[in-house]
């Protein structure tokens, strides 16, 4: 019987049973992690559900997560296997290998191919995320009416109709200005902190800032868009009809907050979006309009009184 010294033995091939075991372990880990997902909502994925673009970002993220998971388990597995299998033992001799050009080219191309696949998926998904959808049939039905504006200087849905709201970031509050159909924006209805929008209606936002940089973000309605002074940024969302309530107060409220450091009170620069039915929305807009008009009248009357007092003296 000849005894081959360990150094001269050919390296043992990866035993198939062990390979099966490793695969099974990886599969169990993946499955249990996937199962843990729903238990801890948003542990593994970004928030979504309030708007198609947020949902599409979510599904793109999930695809990337799966690819990333495969890469993670593959590389960490190879690392741990190497550490376990090739630890210093009596009689073991390190193979003096200096490299392998074919292997180098292979894993370079392999990495590139994965990235090409991810880029392709991204480009397929991109238009649905970036470009607004048309409003649904249950949306604000005032086609042709001035409240839905067709514009060319921002991204619009294919039919060119959306509810276009101006978002203005300022230390430390968000202000929303709603369209009223005329070119004078000084008398438009507006609100602070809480934006009210009709469901099933495409809402496009013109995001600006008046002091420092802020960032508009309501996670369930899609990504962040910075409000940078001197620039206008754009995004959109369309909240499904199911989120509106029977009454105005029962409408679902989506919360978010400023995501760009804007000063000491950055943490409290909250944004809320209340989803209501188109009818409730129109009613609310009318109410805001009359409130604004009434406040203007009161102010005008007060000014007149003050003028009279000053002139009388």
């Amino acid at each position: 019987m000849t005894i081959i010294p360990p150094a001269l033995r050919p390296p043992r091939p990866f035993p198939t049973t062990r390979r099966r075991l490793a695969l099974a372990l990886a599969a169990v880990t993946v499955v249990s992690l996937a199962a843990a997902g729903p238990a801890f909502a948003n542990f593994w994925t970004p928030e979504s559900g309030g708007s198609p673009n947020a949902d599409r970002i979510h599904s793109l993220y999930v695809i990337v997560l799966v690819v990333a998971g495969v890469v993670f388990f593959g590389v960490e597995g190879a690392l741990l296997y190497a550490l376990f299998r090739f630890r210093a033992r009596k009689g073991a001799v390190a193979a003096q290998i200096r490299g392998n050009t074919r292997l180098e080219i292979g894993w370079t191309i392999g990495a590139a191919v994965i990235l090409v696949v991810l880029a392709t998926v991204t480009f397929i998904k991109l238009p649905g995320i970036r470009n607004p959808d048309d409003s649904g049939p249950g949306g604000l039905q005032t086609a042709g009416a001035p409240i839905l504006t067709a514009q060319v200087d921002n991204r619009q849905p294919p039919n060119g109709k959306s509810l276009r709201i101006a978002v203005n970031g300022q230390q430390y509050i968000w202000r929303y200005t709603y369209p009223d159909g005329d070119s004078n924006t000084l008398n438009n209805p507006f609100s602070y902190t809480e934006m009210v929008v009709p469901t099933d209606t495409t809402v496009t936002l013109d995001i600006r800032a008046q002091d420092v940089a802020h960032s508009w973000w309501v996670p369930k309605l899609g990504g962040k868009f910075d409000a940078v002074p001197g620039y206008t940024n754009h995004t959109w969302f369309k909240i499904p009809a199911k989120f509106a309530g029977a009454t105005f107060a029962k409408g679902t409220v989506f919360t978010g907050q400023c995501a760009e450091l804007c000063g000491r009170n950055h943490a409290n620069m909250i944004a809320r979006v209340r989803a209501v039915t188109p009818a409730q929305f129109e009613q609310w807009i009318a109410q805001r309009k009359s409130d604004v008009a009434q406040a203007d009248d009161t102010a005008a009357a007060g000014r007149k009184k003050l003028d009279a007092q000053l002139n009388g003296q």
């Binding site: 590389v75 190497a82 090739f86 630890r87 073991a92 001799v93 390190a94 193979a95």
Partner: peptide
């Protein structure tokens, strides 16, 4: 990882 592979790793 290729460098670790088939080495005699001292921890």
């Amino acid at each position: 990882i290729g460098t670790l592979w088939r080495g005699t790793i001292e921890f």
